[in-house]
Nucleic acid binder design. Structure first.
Ligand code: MN
Ligand code: MN
Ligand code: ZN
Ligand code: ZN
Lengths: 126, 126
DNA sequence: ATGAAATTAATAATTATTATTAATTTAATG
DNA sequence: CATTAAATTAATAATAATTATTAATTTCAT
């Protein structure tokens, strides 16, 4: 993987976020500093970076994928109203993979845990 | 929600599955018995049925949504090679929602837990 | 400096899903 | 049973998210 200015920009911009942005958000932000960068370039580099394990792709029940610069195993909370994605800094249940292994026709290498609910802000509105 | 023959067919066909099919698989199967059923009808009814809680929509890291006639809370194992989705009949960790609540800016109403790995069949092939 | 391989911007294509619409079906009511 | 308004359908168009194509540019080992 050669160096590219655009890839570095994508990585740097994502690292500024703690709110798990989508590709189009990163694109919109980069466009302000680099008005020639292409949306396909943002998608391609987010894909490459996640395939190389430099970032993490997060897929939830609907809409576009989200991206996380934090590749440590940790959990997320998704608001069913506004769709925002929050980190859940609780202790990771490492034992889960072993627990599951006994019930699975294969080898378990990891897990993802997502909590759903309504965030305080949305609860206040209704 | 009025009765419709097509909706009943979608529900019945999904209930025959233990392998979490996608909309296009249900469509292909129904077409054999009912050659006039439309793909949009399958999508619309899967959406309606899951909104009414009669079935469960499952979204994983890539590709199309999967559907599950079992609405009880339970976990899944996805093979990273073939993409197949297996049930994981381990005990459900009900306490997780309460554990998470302390770390979350909102109210947690549920969670989804997905295990990833390689199924035995795919492991044998490589 | 040279040149092969990698990357880009622009755009086309693809995939999964939802929306539109005119025709048909359902089900409540007289 | 006949009437009729609302729900549903098949067919198809449209949309949203993402990936592929391509010609031009950039990177980087030699
Ligand atoms: Mn995170
Ligand atoms: Mn299941
Ligand atoms: Zn919210
Ligand atoms: Zn497999």
């Amino acid at each position: 993987m050669n160096y590219s200015r655009q890839r570095e920009e994508v990585m740097d911009q994502l690292k500024l976020h703690h709110d798990h942005p989508t590709a189009d958000i990163i694109f919109a932000e980069l466009r302000e500093r680099d008005p020639n960068i292409s949306l396909a370039t943002v998608y391609r580099n987010l894909k490459l970076l996640s395939e190389h394990g430099a970032i993490k792709k997060l897929t939830f029940v609907s809409g576009a994928d989200h991206f996380d610069p934090n590749t440590e195993l940790h959990y997320h909370f998704v608001c069913n109203e506004c769709g925002r994605v929050f980190d859940v800094p609780m202790k990771v249940a490492e034992h889960l993979d072993q627990d599951a292994e006994a019930f699975v026709p294969g080898e378990v290498t990891g897990h993802e845990l997502v909590f759903y609910g309504v965030c305080d802000e949305c609860a206040r509105k209704s």
